[in-house]
């Protein structure tokens, strides 16, 4: 079984600090990590491989330094890695990103599964996974919290919705996006780390993928960012002081109207 995992390198939020004066993000020297949800995607792919045999390819589109994310995935147990890096890809929105990645997936075919994270922690869109499925006309199961069964030609998976869990069966190949509940990502072994160091990362450019330039980067992106700004600061808070029963009375008095309004909607 060939499984492709799509991973994105993102700034480490644990590392991101808020400047107390300006309330803006301090980004200087912020480390990059694999998007948290993608760690679960990598882990799930490796678990399937360990059970069913086959190989895991990790795929990422990003600047040259995204190579380190791919190496980390190899250290966890992925077999090979492909980086899509080309200046022509700069400025891609989710349409162009999913197009570019889907062109690479065509080149990596045959595969039985594509696994993505639910969403990336920088853009928070959750659009790239289903977008790729649309470009490739693959069936999709999003928000997967558990794989119940996987055979050569089909998969049965649990999908987490707001009000419960849906059990879905799909033929393969199929695209999944996974949530945190699905597993606990492993810590790379020493052997894995050595393999990662030695691994050859394949780099593909636009020309290698046979992309239509009109679908790439800024030109291929229907959406344009026109403005970036800081969220309005929250109005200054109030600390309630006194004995417990006193502060509780104060809080209830302050919240009562809001509670009544909120429960009447």
């Amino acid at each position: 079984m060939h499984i492709v995992v799509c991973i994105k390198q993102v700034p480490d939020t644990a590392d991101v600090k808020i400047d107390p004066k300006t309330n803006t993000l301090i980004r200087e020297g912020v480390a990059s990590v694999i998007n948290p949800f993608d760690m679960y995607a990598i882990e799930e792919a490796i678990r399937i491989k360990e059970k069913k045999g086959g190989k895991v390819t990790v795929l990422s589109m990003g600047p040259p330094q995204a190579e380190s994310a791919l190496r980390e995935a190899i250290s966890m147990g992925a077999d090979s890695a492909v980086l899509l890096s080309d200046r022509a890809f700069a400025g891609s929105d989710t349409w162009a990103t999913s197009y570019t990645l889907s062109m690479a997936l065509r080149k990596l075919f045959p595969f039985q599964l594509v696994i993505c994270g639910k969403q990336a922690s920088d853009g928070d869109t959750a659009q790239v996974g289903p977008g790729m499925a649309a470009h490739l006309d693959l069936p999709q199961i999003t928000y997967v919290r558990k794989i119940e069964e996987i055979a050569d030609d089909h998969i049965v998976a649990e999908r987490l919705l707001e009000d419960g869990t849906e059990v879905i069966r799909s033929p393969l190949p199929c695209l999944l996006t996974v949530v945190k509940e699905i597993n606990e990502p492993r810590i790379p072994s020493l052997k894995g780390k050595l393999a990662a160091k030695k691994a050859q990362i394949t780099v593909w450019k636009s020309a290698d993928l046979g992309c239509d330039p009109a679908g790439l980067g800024l030109d291929g992106s229907p959406t344009k960012v026109v403005k970036i700004f800081n969220p309005p600061p929250r109005a200054g808070g109030e600390m309630l002081k006194g004995e417990p029963d006193e502060v509780v009375r104060q809080l209830v008095a302050k919240l009562k109207d809001a509670v009544v309004a909120a429960s009447s909607v």
């Binding site: 929105d93 989710t94 349409w95 999913s98 197009y99 853009g123 928070d124 869109t125 959750a126 659009q127 790239v128 996974g129 289903p130 977008g131 499925a133 649309a134 470009h135 999709q140 999003t142 928000y143 987490l160 919705l161 707001e162 992106s221 229907p222 959406t223």
Partner: peptide, 22 residues
């Protein structure tokens, strides 16, 4: 919503529309 995001991401690609999340 979970349904909404899953659905329109597919639609936007096919009709080549811009899609802004959340």
């Amino acid at each position: 919503t979970t349904i909404g995001r899953s659905l329109v991401s597919r639609v936007a690609v096919t009709v080549k529309a811009g899609l802004t999340a959340d």
